[in-house]
Design a protein around this nucleic acid. Structure first.
Lengths: 217, 217
DNA sequence: ATATACATACAGACCGGTTGGTATGTAAAG
DNA sequence: CTTTACATACCAACCGGTCTGTATGTATAT
């Protein structure tokens, strides 16, 4: 990890913070929410305790920051997939496959774990509230900017894509067991039939989209 | 909790085990998976450390046992709702409402939390594997024994109900934030349209169903 | 019936290890 | 010299688990 055993110090706040958040995400993926202790995080980041608590008042603040980064990254990944479809770089089938893959990735499962885990932790849940709201919004935009639903008003579209999102969330959850090998095929067959049948892909230039969240206030 | 400060001991293994499992579920609901320490569990159960480790070799075994109980209880709740629909005691709309409520309850959210949380814990995930397999089976039976899907073969029915289950899981997940007040209405509108349109309720006497799991081997 | 022997059910002190967080010190930058 | 960035020693609280001891059962022998 860190071969700088010499006494030269690296003084770069941004870098240190990034390392810490990255290590937190790594730790979340490999050891789950319950495994989010600061010791392994510090080890992975190659950073000292002092550095951590210099930049973050508590462990929860670090987790919240890492969680926020995760969600933003996801929004970016989904946006990327959407653009590939809208530019014709991939087929609708590939779109469903890639989206499913993204949602069922360890990263997103880790997100769900945090989202459920913080239910009982008031301070932490308060810290991530804003990031979650942003994420919700960007998820709807992901669908609504990618597909047109002729004859549907805004309310109906919200309903439609909310259900679609629920399916993917449930899919991600069920795959985290790894016990349903047919789950993927079921998604590939079922999802387009249920949600994309009447939908029309919006050409890439139809609407200029900013998927970016409001970011650090 | 326990006012028996006298030196009279209650010697009832079944009772003690039940108290421990109950306390574990309670603790899971109120404090989440990360809050599953033995101390608060023991306190809630009014049982000593010695009693716990006499009946369960490790904490994980207790959690697994409590988790298994939870899943069986859920299967029972769903079965109950299904029977109400099949006997005509409730409407389809009420059926969707009740099912959604059950899935989005604190109890089930706790289940999801465990299911995700154990991802990184090998021993625990091994312990609950069987219970999860039983649960999967009973969930499919819940749908398939309740509704007929004319013109669908077994494979197609599996696809259909797997997607339906995913929607509910995703719904449960999203409500655990409490941030989407319209989520319930969306489910009530969207679910029947997507999954119950071509489905026919099986009369209660059409098929003798055993929703019971294989139970303790 | 009563005494003996043993298994089971429970209680609570105790253990080493880990937890999140702090206090203090030091090196670099302005 | 002051501020910022990082390092280290340290702390009280808590963790899961083991220990020894005790209360309560039951099976057998007398």
């Amino acid at each position: 990890m860190s071969q700088d055993k010499s006494n030269e110090r690296i003084r770069d706040a941004e870098r240190t913070i990034a390392l810490l958040k990255k290590a937190t995400v790594d730790q979340l993926i490999t050891n789950g929410f319950a495994g989010l202790s600061i010791l392994p995080i510090l080890k992975k980041a190659g950073v000292s305790r002092g550095a951590l608590f210099h930049h973050f008042p508590t462990k929860d603040h670090l987790i919240a920051a890492a969680f926020g980064d995760l969600l933003v990254e996801f929004a970016g990944q989904l946006h990327e997939i959407a653009m590939q479809l809208r530019t014709g770089a991939i087929t609708q089938e590939e779109f469903v496959s890639k989206t499913g893959e993204t949602i069922a990735s360890d990263l997103f499962v880790g997100c769900m774990e945090i989202a459920l885990g913080i239910r009982a932790e008031l301070t932490l849940s308060a810290l991530v509230q804003e990031a979650v709201a942003d994420w919700r919004q960007s998820l709807f935009e992901f669908w609504d900017n990618t597909f047109e639903l002729p004859g549907h008003d805004r309310e109906q579209r919200s309903d439609h894509w909310a259900m679609a999102s629920n399916v993917l969330r449930g899919y991600a959850f069920s795959t985290s067991f790894g016990a349903a090998p047919q789950a993927r095929e079921r998604l590939m067959r079922g999802f387009p039939k249920l949600f994309l049948d009447g939908a029309v892909v919006r050409p890439a230039d139809e609407r200029v989209v900013s998927i970016k969240t409001k970011s650090k206030s």
